[in-house]
């Protein structure tokens, strides 16, 4: 039960060679310079970007394998992806944002409402339910985005720069939420960060993307 990746990801002229395993319940930081391919790595795991060769699997479910031509659509992967800035839907309230994935799965109105409300309450942001994203602070936005992901019980969590561009209060709020999540979440967690303090607070292990002329590499071998 783990996230396992052994793949070459190419995007235009850029190449990233990723080879690592994250265990169930483990929280791993991926560090690297801007443009070293952190977001690209997450996009590939979530299925938003095809890999050129290799395989990615979570809990022994193969998401993609170029050898067997396996490809699971992103909506079937059930990966919790938190992109930079949260990417909340600007036209939906916080409640509707959290309900989005449940609605896409065809869950009944009553059930998704209850689940979303419980999720927001658990994060202490139920008073924001009817607000639109642009009425929130950066930290609040990020917490709604985390709630939107966790309400779906994802098999793995991918957090791309969860505290970037937040003020100190927002950073504290998000870090607290993530620490609590780390305690309860049973799947593998991978996050990227520029901030040594985040890494120290959250990560049990750190992987670094090394850059070279032959392409970027991230490995735990």
């Amino acid at each position: 039960m783990s996230l396992s990746i052994n793949a070459v990801i190419t995007r235009d002229s850029f190449e990233l060679n990723a080879q690592f395993i994250v265990q169930q319940g483990e929280c791993v930081a991926v560090m690297g310079a801007n443009g070293s391919g952190k977001s690209t790595l997450f996009a590939a795991i979530a299925g938003l970007l095809p890999i050129s060769s290799g395989h990615i699997s979570v809990n022994n479910v193969v998401f993609t394998d170029t050898a067997t031509r396996t490809w699971v659509q992103p909506e079937k992967r059930s990966v919790g992806l938190l992109t930079q800035g949260g990417a909340l839907f600007p036209h939906l309230t916080c409640q509707q944002n959290v309900e989005f994935g449940l609605r896409a799965r065809g869950e009944s109105r009553h059930s998704r409402r209850t689940r979303a409300q419980n999720m927001l309450a658990q994060f202490g942001i139920d008073h924001l339910a009817d607000r639109l994203p642009h009425q929130l602070s950066g930290g609040q936005r990020q917490r709604v985005a985390i709630a939107r992901t966790l309400v779906l019980h994802p098999v793995a969590l991918l957090l791309d720069e969860p505290t970037v561009a937040l003020d100190s209060q927002g950073r504290t709020e998000v870090l607290e939420t993530l620490l609590a999540t780390r305690e309860t979440f049973t799947g593998p967690i991978v996050f990227t960060s520029h901030d040594e303090r985040d890494v120290a607070a959250l990560a049990q292990r750190t992987l670094t993307i090394s850059t070279s002329a032959r392409g970027n590499v991230v490995t735990d071998m």
Binding site: A46, E75, A104, R105, R148
Partner: peptide, 21 residues
């Protein structure tokens, strides 16, 4: 924003759902 489309897919939305919602 392409991130919104990517996130919707990742949240379980099929392409039609992404288009309409």
């Amino acid at each position: 924003d392409p991130a919104l489309v990517g996130v919707s897919r990742s949240l379980g939305a099929r392409p039609w759902h992404v288009l309409l919602r």
